[in-house]
């Protein structure tokens, strides 16, 4: 014989992930490290932006980049060419990184060997939004070639972001328009830092670094 019992749980499904993310965030903060999570669609230009950041930051800081992709090490290899340490997480079919995947990679290194950490999340404007990876700041990258409605269609991912990057602005006026994306990103959240960049020409990269709160010492 057995008996039935209803147990009231009332606990968020994200609890384990959120607890671990908070632990990562606190640990990084206590050690004086910076940790940024870069999200955006496939082809928005996240990897090329990170290549730009790697070039500018690696002369003064020890940078560690965690790339998320369903397969291949293409992105991590591209960024590693610029003198920063990278690791590629292959999620198989998973459409986002999570705190557990990040924690596993951080366990393999000595955090004190680095100053600034980035994740390049799996290319997707939906799924990464709900999964906290433990970063101190979220950045969403959209590019003007994704069309003028991309922010209107995917506003939720911007809710947890502090910076919205409108990329590929070198194509502004050539059949694409950055202004509507800038305006939409600003409407979702007050205080959102909206920056137009071109990872191809380098436009706006210094503004991006400034928005991240990273200082690059001037050369003597």
């Amino acid at each position: 014989m057995s008996q039935e019992k209803k147990i009231s749980v009332r606990e968020t499904v994200y609890k384990k992930n959120d607890d671990l993310a908070e632990e990562i965030r606190k640990n990084m903060k206590n050690k004086g490290k910076l940790f940024f999570n870069i999200m955006g669609s496939i082809g928005a230009g996240k990897t090329l932006l990170l290549e730009n950041l790697a070039v500018k930051l690696s002369t003064h800081y020890r940078v560690f980049v965690i790339n998320g992709d369903i397969a291949t090490t293409i992105d991590a290899d591209r960024i590693a060419k610029h003198g920063v340490k990278t690791v590629q997480i292959n999620t198989g079919g998973g459409c986002h990184l999570n705190a557990n995947l990040i924690a596993k990679e951080l366990e393999k290194i000595n955090i004190d060997d680095f100053d600034i950490f980035f994740t390049e999340n799996v290319g997707n404007l939906i799924c990464p939004a709900a999964w906290d990876v433990g970063a101190q700041m979220n950045i969403v990258v959209v590019s003007i070639t994704e069309g003028e409605y991309v922010v209107k269609k995917h506003p939720i991912i911007f809710k947890d972001a502090e910076i919205a990057i409108i990329n590929k602005c070198d194509l502004d006026g050539l059949g694409f328009d950055s202004q509507v994306l800038e305006e939409d990103a600003s409407k979702i959240k007050s205080g959102m830092k909206v920056i137009c960049t071109s990872a191809k020409t380098g436009q706006g990269i210094d503004d991006f670094i400034e928005a991240l709160g990273i200082e690059i010492p001037r050369d003597e």
Binding site: S2, Q3, E4, K5, K6, I7, S8, V9, R10, E11, T12, V13, Y14, A130, I156, K159, K187, I188, K189, S190
Partner: peptide, 19 residues
């Protein structure tokens, strides 16, 4: 539109167990 959206909503409310 400067609002916090409550996403903790995705919640396990209860489970029925056979004991």
């Amino acid at each position: 539109r400067d609002t916090h959206i409550d996403r903790s909503y995705l919640t396990i409310e209860s489970v029925d167990l056979e004991l």
